[in-house]
Each structure stands twice: as structure tokens, then as C-alpha cells.
Design a protein around this nucleic acid. Structure first.
Length: 290
RNA sequence: GGGAGGGUAGCGAAGAGGCUAAACGCGGCAGACUGUAAAUCUGUUACCAUCGGUUUCGGCAGUUCGAAUCUGCCCCCUCCCA
């Protein structure tokens, strides 16, 4: 059986996963867009080598903060390690907060390889972009909001450089799980509690030396566009650039983490067919008792 | 004690007689999601309700067909001079 543990940031998913994995004696595949980076530890809440369960983890510390990474890469990394582990393990735990990554890994999503320079598109305004999309891939126009530049640009880019347009690609998929025996376990505690945990956790990160970690990171690497998006990192960078006071920086990190947790809940709730539990404890019992 | 400026929805902040249940920002809530996803974007946010209705802009009393906006008194806050 594969247990996919879903839940908003800061509720203790990792420790739950470790307990389960110890109990089941099985590996755990992380699904986290930032724990995949080496040397980004404190801010991502990553498990460390001296902690129990570390050795059972896959897909953490896999790449360097200089590398750009996205769903497509994760999808292939995940499937490779998952299928390999499946050969020798009865159970596998998948845990993480990056919903899209999990979805793309487990469902029949297809990402075509392509290269396209979008600098011409970046210069256009939303209206013009949307008009262009209407010409190149009218179907996509139904699901992408005109203000969502990022997606409009991407859809145009796919339409002009791939064999299929984005909407055609999606149409040709079956929207089915690729693997059998998967249980989606969604831990969804009361909002108030989640926010409280986040606030405490962020304070803890700063006490544990987040600022120092970011300094060291900047020293050692030229951060990639994706790596520098991490909450907790981008704000500390602003602080180091004197664009923010320490106090405002901490508050911002808390706020963005809360907003993020909210979005995660929405995604999990609607994108997966899952069993929902109000607490870590309940989720754990549900898994262990079968 | 003298002078000046203020009190507007959860917070910040516009509005200076009808077009205002009240701009905008933040926060909250809800939602979308197929290549930056810890990203990007949308809706909603006095109260009750389907149309629609009810009560609001420190308080009270006025002026007016009509007041958050004008007048009087009162209560708070900030700054300056004593």
C-alpha cells in the first residue's frame, strides 16, 4: 500500500510520516518543492541526518540551489524512485505539501519537452496576451483567467512550440491514477490551530538561525529562480538587503506561510479523493489500524 | 489652562449634503489550478434574506425633502504653547 500524506505546512507531517514509516518499516518519498534543495534546511523544515528516519527519505537534498526545478523534473524523479522502490517494498509513504507535484507524479499528466523564448510575450499587456491565446488555443481561454499572465503566457508558449496545444494535451489524458493501492490521507486540523503552529514554527526557525543559513546560502550559491521563491528565504534576502526590518521580515514570513497553508488546504480538498482527518493522531491511528 | 488636528466597517485609510452599505489597501473567508506551485490568479467580506429589506460612519439633539458629510452640546484621542 502507498500512503500519501497530505496536509498544510507546519502541522507535523514529517514526524507523522516518520512514525508510520518506522512502524511499517518502509521508505518515504518526499514531495516538497524546496526540501529537494541541498542546504536549504531550517526554512524548509527539513529532516536532518541526525534525526530518526532520515535515511528512509527519498527526494530530499537532491539538487543544488543553483538548479532550476519544476513539476516536470519532479514527475520523472518521483516515478523513477517510486517504481524502483515498489520492487522491494510492500508499503511506501509519500509525504509533502506540494500538491501539484503529487498530482503530476501520480496521475497521467504529460509535460512535453519544449524550448521557447517568451521575452516577446513578457512585454505584452494582459489584454493582448489573452487575444493571442484566443487565436492559438481558444479552448484554454475557458479555463485561464485573463489576469493570470503566467498561465496565459505558458499556454501561448506551448501552443506555438509543441505539437499539441495545452488544452489538446489535457484532453488526450484520462485523468486517472497511474498506480494502484494508493490511499490519500489528508490531515486537516482546525484553521486556528494551523495558524498558531505556523507562527510558533517561524519564530523557531529564526531562533534556529535562518538568517545565518540564508547568508551562507547566498555566499555559496547563485540561487536559481525557483530556489529563491521559497518562503522564509526570499523575505530574509529582503531583510539582508535592508528592504525590511527584522521584525517586519518575521511577520511577513508568518503571513505568507499562513496564506500558503490556506491554499494547500483548498488544493488537497478538491484535487484528491482523500480520507480526511482532523489531527495527526487520528490519521496515524487510521493508517496503523488498517 | 490656551491653541491645532482628529474619531469612518476586523485594521489602515478615502469620502466634505443626494450618484454611498460607504473608494482603496491589508487581514479574513471561499475558490481555481497540468512546466517558477512555498508560485500565479479569481470571488467575497455591516446585518437578514431569493428579489429585496434592516440598522450604520464616537454620543445625543438639531437644520434639511435628503446628513458620514452642516449646526449645538457632550465623550474620547494626538500634537503644540503654558
Amino acid at each position: 500500500m502507498t500512503y500519501v500524506i497530505l496536509g498544510p505546512t507546519g502541522i507535523g507531517k514529517t514526524s507523522l510520516a516518520v512514525e508510520i514509516v518506522e512502524h511499517l518499516n518502509c521508505p518515504i518519498i518526499s514531495c516538497d518543492a524546496f526540501q529537494i534543495y541541498k542546504d536549504m534546511n531550517i526554512g524548509t523544515g527539513k529532516i536532518m541526518p541526525n534525526e530518526k528516519g532520515f535515511d528512509r527519505h527519498y527526494l530530499i537534498n537532491k539538487i543544488t540551489p543553483e538548479e532550476t526545478y519544476s513539476v516536470k523534473e519532479y514527475q520523472s524523479d518521483f516515478r523513477k524512485t517510486y517504481e524502483e522502490l515498489l520492487k522491494t517494498n510492500k508499503d511506501i509513504v509519500v509525504a509533502g505539501g506540494t500538491g501539484l507535484y503529487i498530482k503530476a507524479a501520480l496521475y497521467d499528466y504529460v509535460f512535453e519537452t519544449y524550448e521557447d523564448d517568451t521575452s516577446d510575450l513578457e512585454k505584452m499587456d494582459n489584454g493582448a496576451l489573452y487575444n493571442l491565446l484566443t487565436v492559438l488555443d481558444p479552448e484554454s481561454t475557458k479555463t485561464i483567467h485573463p489576469n493570470n499572465r503566467k498561465r496565459v503566457i505558458h499556454a501561448i508558449s506551448v501552443a506555438r512550440s509543441c505539437a499539441k496545444t495545452k488544452s489538446e494535451g489535457i484532453d488526450s489524458q484520462e485523468h486517472k491514477l497511474l498506480y494502484d493501492n494508493i490511499r490519500f490521507i489528508f490531515v486537516n486540523p482546525d484553521r486556528e490551530l494551523v495558524y498558531e503552529n505556523i507562527n510558533k514554527r517561524v519564530d523557531g526557525m529564526f531562533k534556529a538561525g535562518l538568517v545565518e543559513e540564508v547568508k551562507a546560502l547566498l555566499n555559496k550559491y547563485e540561487l536559481s529562480v525557483t530556489a529563491r521563491e521559497a518562503i522564509g528565504y526570499k523575505e530574509v534576502i529582503s531583510y539582508l538587503n535592508k528592504e525590511l526590518s527584522l521584525e517586519d521580515c518575521i511577520e511577513l514570513v508568518k503571513k505568507r506561510s499562513r496564506n500558503y497553508a490556506k491554499r494547500q488546504v483548498t488544493f488537497f480538498k478538491h484535487q484528491f479523493d482523500c480520507e480526511t482527518y482532523n489531527s495527526i493522531k487520528e490519521a496515524k491511528e487510521a493508517i496503523i489500524n488498517g
